[in-house]
Simulated assay, not measured.
Amino acid sequence: MNAYLHRNGERGHVKMGWLESKHSFSFGSWHNPQYMGVSALRVINDDLIATHNGFGMHPHDNMEILTCVLDGTISHRDSMGNERHISAGEWQLMSAGTGVQHSEINNGDVPVHMLQIWIHPNQRNAAPKYQQIQCDPREQPNQWHVIAGPNADALMHIRQQAEVKSALLEKAQALDVIAAQRINYLHVISGAIQVAEYTMNAGDAIAFAESARIEALEDAQVIWFDLPEVKN
């Protein structure tokens, strides 16, 4: 199998007071020219946010920003007038478009563990929009859940020819990844899996451009980014 393996230990590790984060790709103060994203996928930040702290109001534009809350509850406010709480098992998609300001604060008494994912859109300067869903793959294991994509079967609509899918595989279960002239980027949230000759653990990721089978060596949660061959 021709693949590019990105191990957990190769991610950037940033710790500053209330925030501990692992960056799959260059972000903020951590920069590595080898890790600048894959296709339209630009950011995967694995964040641990301390209690009663978080990201104050700040701007974004022309980026599809997806948040996956794994533990705890984060409180969201934005310049579109949204005030929402995103809890474990929920997902948020903020299409920044022409520009939006937002904050993400942990107002709770337990740390928040979440993934922040940025995807380049294929249209610029569109109107900003906000989407939020409940979809915890742990409640319906051993199947793909299409979290975000350009088509009607996705739970949230993204402005890019890309799909974000998630699954919880129970030990010894397997799922297929179909290439279809696309780039696959598979990120392991928790547990351990086998992809062809590669054994992967939490924080590991792999990019490949062919079909493959994922086998769970133990209960494992994964995200599959089905990406265009070019960023477009």
Score class of each variant (00 low, 15 high):
M94Y: 00
I117L: 06
N125G: 04
D71T: 15
K231S: 15
Y185K: 02
E218Q: 14
K22R: 15
K22T: 07
V188A: 11
R213I: 11
R213L: 06
I193R: 03
V43D: 01
I223K: 01
I147D: 10
Q181F: 06
G56L: 01
Q116D: 06
A192Y: 08
M80G: 04
P228Y: 09
D204E: 09
A196F: 00
K15Y: 11
H102P: 06
Q132R: 02
N184G: 08
D219P: 08
N107D: 13
R182S: 06
S87T: 15
P33D: 10
G203A: 03
D78S: 01
V110K: 15
I147N: 12
A148M: 02
N32Y: 03
Y35S: 04
I183L: 10
H60C: 08
Y198M: 10
K22F: 13
Q131R: 03
G203Y: 07
N232H: 14
H58Q: 08
P228R: 04
N125Q: 11
T73C: 15
V177Y: 02
T67V: 13
V222C: 07
P128D: 01
A216N: 08
I74G: 06
M1V: 10
E229L: 15
M16S: 15
A40V: 05
P59F: 08
D204L: 07
M1Q: 05
K22V: 01
M94G: 06
H120V: 09
S39A: 07
N106L: 11
